[in-house]
């Protein structure tokens, strides 16, 4: 019962935040709505028993990426942007694509609703994730650290004042 209340609350927070991201005219409000939506997703993770994923979602997404996007919005905006239309003229076609795909995904997800799954007990996951990353997934772990290093260098290179 408490899980259902938590799920619906976090789902409402997530969807309202996401709706604000794509519809609000002021980009800084969109960025703040993105933070709200990511926090709602973190709540969904906590409700699913993924404790380490919950913590990293809060640390990396809400504390890092959302703040970075807010910084970029503040660096790039102009005051005249606040009164301009923020969606292009193809919004009706995009809405149609979304609605049709939603109906298709709804019908596909209904297949799972006929096979009731046992609700598993939540367990601590941090130790298992650490062992997996140092064991079977050691090569992707090293590769992702290389990707992060390359992203760091690329960000420094692109944001220099004069590009050679």
């Amino acid at each position: 019962m408490i899980e259902a209340i938590a799920f619906y609350t976090f789902a409402a927070v997530t969807l309202i935040g996401a709706f604000g991201v794509v519809t609000l005219r002021n980009t800084i409000y969109s960025a703040l709505c993105l933070g709200l939506c990511l926090a709602g997703v973190a709540g969904i993770f906590a409700n699913l028993g993924a404790d380490f994923l919950f913590a990293s979602q809060l640390l990396i997404y809400v504390g890092g990426i959302a703040i970075l996007i807010v910084f970029a919005v503040m660096l790039l905006g102009r005051t005249s942007d606040l009164h301009l239309k923020q969606v292009n003229e193809q919004w009706a076609a995009a809405f149609l694509i979304g609605a049709v795909t939603w109906v298709g995904l709804w019908r596909a997800a209904k297949i799972f609703s006929h096979t009731p799954l046992p609700i598993p007990e939540a367990a601590k996951t941090t130790r298992a994730i650490g062992l997996l990353m140092m064991g079977d997934l050691a090569v992707p772990f090293e590769a992702i650290s290389l990707v992060l290093l390359a992203a760091l260098l690329g960000a420094v290179f692109f944001s220099r004042k004069e590009n050679p």
């Binding site: 996401a18 709706f19 794509v22 980009t27 942007d81 969606v87 995009a94 809405f95 995904l105």
Partner: peptide, 16 residues
């Protein structure tokens, strides 16, 4: 699915 489709809508229509 709902979150993904909202994202697709935004990526297709936002000008910024």
């Amino acid at each position: 699915a709902a979150l993904f489709l909202i994202g697709v809508f935004g990526a297709l229509t936002r000008r910024n």
